[in-house]
Design a protein around this nucleic acid. Structure first.
Length: 372
DNA sequence: CTGCCACTATATGGGGTTAA
DNA sequence: TTAACCCCATATAGTGGCAG
């Protein structure tokens, strides 16, 4: 304990109780100097790599052409390369939205990146990562216990799941297998942890998607409290976050309600990325693997996470957009209760700021390219 | 290819701390 | 006092380098 407190920089004034979310719409994401330093480091690395495989540059044309021969054979038959690259750029937006999500949860990071020098910056990021991984591990272990309890309770399974061992989970176990099974497949007619009532409606893929009880339970266990997860039922609201909360709420909320993760990290509504996080955690808890791996057999967690985030953030049209917004509202109501106000959080993630960041990134890359 | 070693990431139990 | 968050220590699994 003494160690972690002593590590706090006494000059560190960026630990405010009520952080101010920076306005990213018009500003440069990080200080030009710090960014330049990082960029230089990256370029130097690149240069070294290029030196090692010299010779490719002289015969640029033939090299490109001969390399291009592989594309139809292995990559795409009809799609134009421009479309392909455009698609990749679109996916890159996910990273930028990620930065904005970071700025939302840790508003002080933005200015730190601007003001600290490179070494302090690296140190900060290392520590942030440490905390991030630790919290993830904690969630994994709590869910390992809780998920067994929920599955045992709700499905009256005959080989009861053991909280301390994952041997019997995954597809070995009928219920786990059913919950894990991809929707398009058929595991005794109904599949997948994500769906409401665990039934997948073949006609409308989205119907009930991301509304299953176990997901809500897991979400509440992580973001409000393990005990609050017990009170998830049917279509009711999650009005009782904690018994302890009620009194505090009645006396109007000047005082912080009992600490739960959501209030600690200043999360006032359910976000796409938090759902994606929970979905992956639950999927892992239901599986039989004992250690996080990006790829588990045929299943790729990273792709799974990406797809989930894109489902919410990268929405094709206005109709789907409305549906997704509805779903997020449903989640927020489910987790925080129907009287919950979420309009206190400034909406940093605006189209404006994403565009601004995209332009800046492009300018940066152009500059780097020109300097070669 | 195999065995060994070093290193990193993750899992997990336990205990400290805190808010109500 | 209790529930729950947070942190630490330790064990274990995965990874990569390297010599034989």
């Amino acid at each position: 304990m003494s160690q972690s407190t002593s590590e706090h920089d006494p000059l560190d004034q960026t630990h405010p109780a009520t952080p101010v979310v920076p306005d990213l719409s018009g500003t440069i994401p990080t200080s030009t100097e710090a960014r330049a330093k990082r960029r230089i480091a990256a370029l130097e690395e690149e240069l070294q790599e290029l030196k090692q495989e010299k010779g490719t540059k002289q015969r640029k044309m033939t090299y490109y052409i001969s390399q291009g021969r592989a594309i139809r054979r292995t990559t795409v038959l009809y799609t134009s390369l421009e479309d392909l690259i455009g698609e990749n750029d679109r996916r890159q937006d996910r990273l930028q939205r990620g930065y904005l999500a970071l700025a939302q949860t840790l508003p002080w990071v933005h200015s730190k990146l601007t003001n600290l020098d490179v070494e302090d910056c690296e140190d900060m990021l290392r520590k942030l990562k440490k905390g991030a991984d630790a919290a993830q591990g904690d969630d994994t272990s709590t869910l390992k216990d809780l998920v067994t309890a929920w599955v045992n309770e709700d499905f009256r399974v005959s080989p009861l799941l053991r909280p301390d061992s994952k041997q019997l989970r995954s597809f070995v176990h009928d219920v786990c297998g059913r919950l894990l099974c991809p929707a398009e497949w058929d595991w005794s007619n109904d599949c997948t942890e994500a769906w409401a009532n665990y039934a997948f409606n073949g006609g409308d893929v989205e119907k009930g998607l991301f509304r299953s009880k176990i997901l809500v339970q897991a979400f509440k266990a992580i973001f409000t409290s393990p005990s609050s997860a017990r009170e998830v039922e049917g279509d009711g609201d999650g009005a009782n976050i904690l018994k302890n909360n009620r009194r505090a709420r009645q006396t109007l909320n000047h005082v912080k309600v009992k600490t739960c993760i959501a209030s600690i990290i200043n999360m006032r509504k359910v976000t796409p990325r938090s759902i994606a996080y929970v979905v992956c955690q639950v999927r892992f808890a239901l599986s039989s693997v004992s250690s996080w791996r990006t790829v588990d057999g045929d299943f790729n967690y990273e792709a799974f996470w990406n797809n989930t985030v894109d489902f919410f953030e990268d929405v094709p049209g206005p109709v789907a957009q409305r549906r997704v917004a509805k779903l997020l509202e449903w989640w927020t109501r489910k987790v925080f209760g129907k009287n919950h106000r979420d309009d206190l959080t400034p909406d940093v993630v605006s189209k404006m700021s994403v565009t601004a960041l995209a332009e800046q990134r492009k300018a940066l890359e152009d500059a780097a390219f020109d300097s070669e």
